[in-house]
Amino acid sequence: MTHANRVSAAALACVLLAGSPWAVAPAQAQRSTQTAALRVTGFDVEQVDRLEPGAELNFTVWGTPGAAVMLQIDGSRRQVRLDETTAGRYQGSYVVGRSDRITQESRVHANLRSGNRVATATLGEALQSGWPLPGEAALPEIQSLSVTSAPGQGRSEALRYTLRGTPGGQASVQLQGSQARNVVLDEVRSGEYVGTYVLPAGAWVDTQQPLVAQLRLGDRSTQTRVAEAYAGVNLRATRAGYDACVDCATVQAINEVVVDGEGKVLGTVAGGVLGAVVGSQFGKGDGRTAAGVAGAVGGALLGREIQRRNNQRTQYEVVVRMTDGVQRTVVYAERPTFRVGDRVRVAGDTLELRR
């Protein structure tokens, strides 16, 4: 083969090769690989305690290196650009403004762009701690429940209940004892619910029963039971104290009354009749008037009324409330030294001051 023929053959081979599909296969394969490699591998946010103006949301996206990443937050005024701090790691923050409408239900979308190719991802957690993934039903959670003593009024005792859990809910505890009832707790800080209950006089708490709390969020609720919630509480009004002191009571009132010779309280009507009879006999009336009255009511009745009137005396009735809520009255011939509110013990027909 001549030199010219060799050149022509080589040129023909190049032309044939250029027209062959094998000539472009490597470039197509490379482009295909690059398209498949453009992706988001991770998406994270530092959750805040409360979504309010001034709250800073810090985002991190992991994905293909060398790209540009933009975030769109539902309810925000603008997009958020993330900087590539290390290869394939993009970070940025957004401060919630007063005109934003970002809520616990807001979704966040990330766009990772390289040239004319884009990979997208949606944040898989809520922006506020304690909230579920946007679009899912809320599942409230109780993290802790505690009881402490609180200052009461006078000699009364009070209990302070604290529950920590999912914010934005409605919390309550069930008080077991002489007066079973629900104590509503107020959310004083995000996820912290507090309530104080002052025990009425004579009431007691069954500290042997588990303390039950409930947290409701929308139409979903959860409960927890703490077996020894009162273990560190110094409380006098307990079921154990009630069982050990069935004759204990609290002074409710001290009444001064006037009774006749037979121990009966002189009422208004009886006092009025007796006053008319006695006044007619010993006052300005004469014997004929007295005899007229005596003839009307009977001589024996008049004599008995005069004797009862002459033997009247003052006595003192001390009204107490027992630990089971029942009221009793103890009578004293002399003025007692008790005061309203004193804690006493009933011993037969008398009272003993209890410290």
Rank of each mutant, 00 (worst) to 15 (best):
V257A: 09
E192G: 05
L266T: 04
G75M: 02
A4P: 08
S76L: 05
A213W: 05
V346D: 08
Y90D: 13
W62M: 13
I254W: 07
S114E: 11
S280P: 03
G271V: 00
R6N: 10
R101C: 08
E334Q: 15
Y193A: 11
G299W: 02
L17V: 13
V173I: 12
V246M: 09
N234Y: 02
V95G: 08
S146V: 00
T64K: 04
V326Q: 15
G287Y: 01
G218K: 01
V344Y: 09
S149E: 10
G275D: 11
F338I: 05
V95N: 10
V183N: 04
G325H: 02
G303D: 11
G177C: 07
S146A: 10
G154N: 08
A180G: 14
C245L: 12
R189S: 15
D324G: 14
V108R: 03
L51Y: 04
T238R: 09
D100R: 02
V340I: 15
V320N: 09
E136I: 00
G267Q: 03
V330Y: 08
E56D: 14
R236K: 04
V226I: 15
T120F: 06
V184L: 14
A119L: 03
Q208F: 07
D349K: 11
N182W: 02
A213M: 10
G115S: 11
D49E: 10
Q104S: 08
Y230M: 11
S106L: 01
D286C: 09
D49P: 09
A171N: 02
R113E: 11
T35Q: 14
P132W: 00
A23Y: 06
V205A: 14
R309H: 15
A9K: 03
L38M: 05
L139C: 10
K264C: 01
Q170R: 11
V183C: 07
G218N: 07
G303H: 06
V48E: 12
G241Y: 05
A296M: 12
V40P: 15
A227M: 09
N116D: 12
V318C: 10
E192T: 13
N310C: 00
T41L: 02
V118Q: 08
R89S: 06
A10Q: 13
F338P: 10
A121F: 07
Q179H: 07
T162H: 13
Y230L: 12
V331N: 12
R236W: 10
Q214C: 04
L127M: 04
D206I: 00
A138N: 13
V277G: 09
V45W: 07
Q91K: 09
R6E: 13
T86R: 15
I254G: 15
L211N: 08
T103P: 14
Q223P: 06
G130A: 07
V40F: 14
P210K: 03
R160Q: 13
G88L: 02
F338R: 05
S129D: 10
G168I: 01
L163W: 01
D260S: 07
S99V: 01
L12N: 10
E317T: 01
R164H: 03
G287H: 08
H3Y: 09
